[in-house]
Design a protein around this nucleic acid. Structure first.
Lengths: 103, 103
DNA sequence: CCATTAGTTCCGAATTTTGGAACTATTGAA
DNA sequence: TTCAATAGTTCCAAAATTCGGAACTAATGG
């Protein structure tokens, strides 16, 4: 968590698909598996792209992924990021909610 | 300001050069001219790239540029963005200050 | 009107992102 | 065990984006 960079966080969340995935994971009480995001809205996301998106979120320090059997369970690392960058994630999640959807 | 998108803001600020420029403009009491950022840190930024960076910040709604004679004066639009996405810019500026510099 | 300063535009090269195909890992059944 | 099915990852070439030098435009002050 020490080498989590703001740059990486902003870059990760500047992509609409990754933002949607993160918002969902951060909002959910329990972990979400990758394939739950095979489509975002009406857009279908290829498996390989999904995998890359999760990798980006992971490397940005925003989520943690653990294998459970055949699937990967993803949980947000909000509280850890909060310690490093207080208020950042809440502000972005709030902004995301206020952002007019038109993609 | 209505069609300012979170995505564009995060993308604009996910670049280290643009982030440095914005932090400087947002922090300065008065407007800053583009050529003031001909170099960021010890890195030299070509004019054409600088121009593109300013364009990105402008289109994201983060700054306003006005020509004054031969130069462009850039001012931040923090208060306007604040109305649209409360707390976002302060949180990012704060995070930027906490981010360990190693680029 | 010319020289100078400040930015923009153009456009090819470098970099990053995308997504299909093939691969790996785990499990549950036969 | 072996096989089929499910869930992700890796590879790599095509598509999209970014970078930066050269030429261009705009404004000012001799």
């Amino acid at each position: 968590m020490d080498d989590v960079r703001l740059e990486a966080i902003l870059h990760a969340l500047s992509d609409p698909v990754r933002a949607a995935i993160f918002v969902e994971i951060a909002g959910a009480g329990c972990s979400q598996i990758c394939s739950a995001f095979a489509s975002v809205g009406d857009r279908v996301i290829p498996k390989s792209s999904l995998s890359q998106h999760f990798k980006a979120l992971r490397e940005a320090g925003l989520i943690r992924s653990e294998r459970h059997g055949v699937e990967m369970r993803n949980t947000s690392r909000c509280s850890e990021v909060e310690e490093r960058f207080p208020g950042l994630i809440p502000a972005i999640l709030n902004a995301h909610a206020r952002d007019i959807r038109r993609t």
